[in-house]
Design a binder for these strands. Structure first.
Lengths: 334, 334
DNA sequence: TTGGGTCACTAGCGCGCGCAAGTCGCGTCA
DNA sequence: TGACGCGACTTGCGCGCGCTAGTGACCCAA
């Protein structure tokens, strides 16, 4: 028996009426309200009746009464959602769900004129993975959103968890490579992240006293990897650190097409450990990121904002890790 | 001056108080309530004051009062969101926004145990692009969702707007090709759509009295297109109709790698007219789908459900169109 | 016997909004 | 002159829920 039978939705008042008790009692039981003592008998009667009637709290009514919507809005950049990000979001969604919050993802489009979702949804928290664009913060504030992450008032701090490039370069260097190149993607939507990883790679190379790292961004949709590779080979490059596994794949393909064996003649290391990395021949050495941990961290961040407790610190389990496979090897002697 | 100044949110009552009029009048003005006569003077005073105070209606309160959330939930399959689909959604979102509805997209994940979004959001309409999975409909009904599209009670009807394969085969046949192959994608997530397009292609070929169409699904992540192509060539295939532009691209690449010129030695036609189609060399002949029209149609479908008016019929502008470029040509004589 | 202190509840307000029903003054027409 | 219609409002309820401020009944110590 549920609301479909009666046509009207089942409310807490229905439960109370059907049991001959007050609405407040029902509310206390259903919410486990602290500071209220309810006899075990009543408690189970309420719970059973709620189940029997198919009761579902009315979210709008609850939102009106509490002043919170229990919605977390995750603003995504206009990227192609890569494998990791998707798992990430899913994990965050799961963790938030357990805490009674719904995670909704949203990609504002520059050309679209539709009202941003934070106006229509009035979420408790708005979360983004990249810095806010100008105007967004004002728009959110005007819409009544008070909890915004990253905090627009805080000084810009170091990007999260970007230790992959250091691991890539470190690994290649420890194998004995001296001339390493960094390969990015030319997709304009991820330009910031590409630039960041490139910067970090160059930095680490300099610290380790390697020769200057040449860098180039390739277009995955054309054959530009081949041309870049030829250039780099001419310049004596023996290893490539790629922005992600897709870019790495493009270079492995280009190498094979020009008769260069991987890893004997060229080492390539990817980033993200996407499924393709372990399928490819040779299997890709890459950087694994802890998507599950990252997702939970994201959820924790949102919850800490809405429940006003201190921000979680990045745990050690969020660290990235090197996954050594078959696409890297010491440079050919001589 | 807005609610950020006072700390509390601005309500319609604030406007009324500040103007010395009743809350109802404010409501009538703000909603353009039909059947109410409001003097022009009062109307502008209310509107001005609302703007001055930075009034935003409280969505939860409105939802509680009206019984509708003005949310449309679009359930997406676990596909990689291709270019067209994204444009599609964006257009639908825009059209719905104009009508005062918010479009939220959601991908239920089989492994995720989080509550489906239709339970937490209580949307007015739930919309999907593919048939419902078992259990989903029950879950939605239990959550109180009454408007479900496609209607689970209606007999399964022909899929929307799938005329692309017929156009592909028709075009190739009219160029003089007699042995045409259909190339699908092996991605399991889009297996249904691939199967549908394959089926339609075979059907049209049979109708046109062509020789039986060989078909194969390739994995875009490996080199399987090359092997398939070799086989087809041996069987006398002169043209390929591809599931989408990506698959077409894979075959163009495979052909070039084995020294077959496109379109002189092999015709390839794609589907979707993604950006890559016009960039590739040779530029891809493909099928353009009216994403904008389709998006508006989707929005119209949702609105018709929520406002209980008849479903829109598919307009002629939603038809697919052949985009003739450089990857198809008559077969080589002899 | 009385006062105080649990325990297990109930009465009822407030959240912000939509809207049905009522009010009041003013012109119009028989 | 009174009935009536109409424009321009106001009064007030209800949506479903959370939760504060009670209210009895019962027990126990003084």
């Amino acid at each position: 028996m549920s609301q479909t039978t009666t046509g009207r939705r089942v409310t807490a008042a229905d439960i109370a009426r059907s049991l001959g008790i007050s609405r407040a009692t029902v509310g206390f039981v259903l919410n486990d309200t602290p500071g209220q003592t309810i006899s075990e008998a009543t408690r189970t009667r309420v719970l059973d009746e709620a189940r029997r009637l198919g009761y579902r709290p009315h979210v709008a009514a609850r939102a009106l009464a509490t002043g919170r919507t229990r919605i977390v809005l995750l603003v995504l950049p206009d990227w192609p959602l890569d494998f990791n990000l998707r798992r990430n979001i899913e994990e965050a969604s799961l963790a938030l769900d357990e805490a009674g919050y719904a995670l909704i993802t949203y990609t504002p489009h520059p050309t679209g004129h539709s009202r941003p979702l934070w106006e229509t949804l009035q979420p408790d928290v708005v979360l983004a993975m990249a810095p806010w664009a100008p105007g967004q913060v004002e728009s959110m504030r005007a819409a009544g959103v008070t909890r915004i992450i990253p905090d627009p008032d805080a000084p810009p701090q170091a990007e999260w968890h970007e230790e992959g490039p250091a691991l890539q370069v470190g690994h290649l260097a420890s194998l004995g490579h001296r001339r390493i190149a960094f390969a990015g993607s030319a997709d304009p939507r991820i330009a910031d992240l590409v630039a960041l990883r490139r910067h970090l790679a160059l930095e680490v190379a300099a610290e380790r006293g390697l020769e200057p790292v040449p860098a180039a961004d390739i277009d995955l949709t054309d054959a530009s990897a081949g041309a870049v590779l030829a250039e780099w080979r001419a310049a004596g490059v023996t290893a490539i650190a790629a922005y992600n596994d897709d870019v790495a794949t493009a270079f492995v393909g280009a190498a094979q097409r020009s008769g260069i064996a991987v890893p004997a003649g060229l080492s390539v290391i990817g980033h993200d450990d996407t499924p393709i990395a372990s399928i490819l021949e040779p299997r890709l050495t890459t950087i694994r990121v802890d998507t599950v941990g990252l997702g939970r961290f994201l959820a924790e961040l949102a919850l800490s904002a809405v429940e006003e407790r201190p921000e979680p610190s990045v745990g050690p389990e969020l660290r990235v890790a090197l996954v050594e496979r078959a696409s890297t090897a010491p440079p050919r002697a001589g």
